[in-house]
């Protein structure tokens, strides 16, 4: 087994059995403040590994796509090989941590809707906040990839939050990393554990790394408590959420568009002399009872070619309604 990458708390090895897979080892290291503080806590790697295996398994069961294949032993997972995007997606339900500090908010202040923020993975720069446009302009991800990552992050928020609420826990925020397979599929990668999320119990006590960050007690104990609580959940009772997808169908470049041309002439007649061109297409708003995943994108592509568009003359663009869930009236982006 060849060491491919050594992170702050994990080591990644090649899988001698397959080039498409990796072995991820969770070490006992725990860090805070971009690695400024680092300790070894025996047993921490095992609990983070088991928590990750449990939660990735749960998300997979709901139809989301992760890099997780199986747990190899106490501290190691077998995973699909992906190239990791150099960004972290953070989803927040309540203000806490760097978000609360940045805007001078009290911890626990609720947000009107879940918020997704992106951070650049860079220890030297202390993982700075990065905008979607900057990510795209720097070529770190395409707009389509970023839309997908955002939408998966919001779906994970729903599935994790609902699961935790079954045992009286509140998902405050969490971090996800994503990777791309050689086929271009985007998978949830890295880990989900007390290291990467904030979870509060009913009295506001932390079951996560804040215990270590703020020296509030025994972090191994709360990680184990979180894992125990997760084992008490009833994952089958969490319903698959309906996801709203928009398909825009437009006549291809070079294809005449009489409806648009008629609209242009009518607009000119109405005095809008600045109208040079109008192209008329169609929008379909679909509610899909299926988790957001590369398979879902593949199914939509099939719907487009088989019915919603005529590939000979029309091009399609798929978008996700921000926060749009089935049953909401169509309002477009906020």
């Amino acid at each position: 087994m060849r060491l491919i990458h050594e992170g702050k708390v994990k080591r990644v090895f090649s899988d001698p059995e397959s080039d498409d897979r990796l072995i991820v080892e969770f070490t006992d290291a725990i860090t805070a403040g971009d690695g400024e503080r680092r300790e070894i806590i025996e047993g921490k790697g095992a609990v983070a590994c088991e928590t990750t295996a449990l939660l990735f398994g749960y998300l997979e069961d709901k139809g989301l796509a992760t890099h997780f294949i199986r747990q190899l032993d106490e501290t190691r997972l077998v995973c699909r090989k992906v190239s990791i995007f150099p960004i972290e997606a953070v989803c927040r339900n309540l203000a806490a941590g760097s978000f609360a500090r940045r805007y001078g908010l009290e911890d626990g202040r609720p947000l009107s809707r879940p918020l997704v923020e992106f951070f650049l993975k860079s220890d030297e720069l202390h993982d700075p906040l990065i905008t979607a446009d900057a990510i795209i302009r720097l070529g770190l991800a395409t707009r389509e990839e970023l839309d997908f990552i955002r939408r998966v992050t919001l779906a994970v928020n729903y599935y994790l939050g609902t699961l935790l609420s079954q045992v009286g826990l509140r998902l405050v925020d969490f971090k996800l990393e994503f990777g791309r397979t050689d086929d271009g599929d985007i998978l949830i990668a890295d880990e989900i554990s007390g290291d990467t999320m904030r979870v509060w119990d009913e009295s506001g006590g932390s079951l996560d790394k804040d215990v270590f960050r703020k020296d509030k007690g025994n972090v191994l104990e709360v990680y184990n408590l979180l894992l125990e609580k997760l084992k008490e959940t009833r994952p089958k009772e969490v319903p698959v959420r309906g996801e709203v997808v928009r398909v825009l169908v437009m006549p291809k470049e070079g294809i005449k568009n009489p409806p648009g041309e008629v609209a242009r002439k009518a607009l000119l007649r109405l005095g809008f002399e600045e109208v040079e061109e109008v192209r008329a297409g169609k929008v379909f708003r679909l509610c899909l009872r299926r988790a957001v995943s590369p398979e879902m994108l593949g199914r939509i592509e099939e719907m487009n070619t088989r019915l919603l568009a005529n590939p000979i003359a029309e091009a399609t663009y798929v978008g996700f309604d921000d926060n749009g869930n089935c049953g909401d009236s169509f309002s477009g982006d906020e």
Binding site: N257, I312, A313
Partner: peptide, 16 residues
């Protein structure tokens, strides 16, 4: 044409 038994497509008349 839509079901693929014949090639091509029938688009809106250019006259609209």
């Amino acid at each position: 044409t839509e079901c693929g038994l014949l090639p091509g497509a029938l688009l809106p008349n250019t006259s609209a």
